[in-house]
Amino acid sequence: MASLIMQMLEGTVTSLRIFFLTLIFSLPLGFVVAKGKMTAIRPVRWLTDLYIQIMRGTPLILQLIFFYFAPFYLFGVSYDRFTACIVAFVVNYSAYFAEIYRSGLQSIDRGQHEAAKVLGFTRPYTFFHIILPQVIKKIMPSLGNEVITLVKDTALAQTIGVAELFRVAQTASSREFSTVPIFIAGIFYFVMNYIVSRIFSVAERKLGYYR
């Protein structure tokens, strides 16, 4: 039993690595994608839209397989499964975050930009100090949702053989002819998401000082 828990903790570490690496890259990248979708330059907007459509319109499990195998079949190069997994997650989640950012950016009154312009703030200053803080407050609930989904989606990494928590649990399960490891994994996911949702509610409360 103790060794099973140890194995599952190791799997959890892998799951958490996927989780944090995905967030580190896709949270900022999502902004770039959102800007692309909102630009006046038509080809850029069109391509960004196509990218978002594909990411949202096909299963993540398929995208994982694509990013693991495509480089080999297309260019004859292969890279390790963990890297492929991170690439797939980042590319997928950037698209989802982009749509959340876009909804936030579009909900900010035009008057905020105009007031900032008239007061002489530069464009970067306006974005980082006037617009972004208000966007973050507005998107907190949808962002929380998406981050919780990500915790559970990490289980898909096993498709290309990444030994994350769920794969470890399944392997143990078939080795011991018992579903217990799977249920233990369920508790692990629940605890992780409980922590995530607590963090988000604290953040929402902290941002609640204004309306």
Partner: peptide, 23 residues
Amino acid sequence: FQSFNLFPHFSVLRNVMEAQRAV
């Protein structure tokens, strides 16, 4: 402006200070 367009996330004081400091 007609619709004031104050910055809602800044206190009253900071609304009046921000551009003085940054600009």
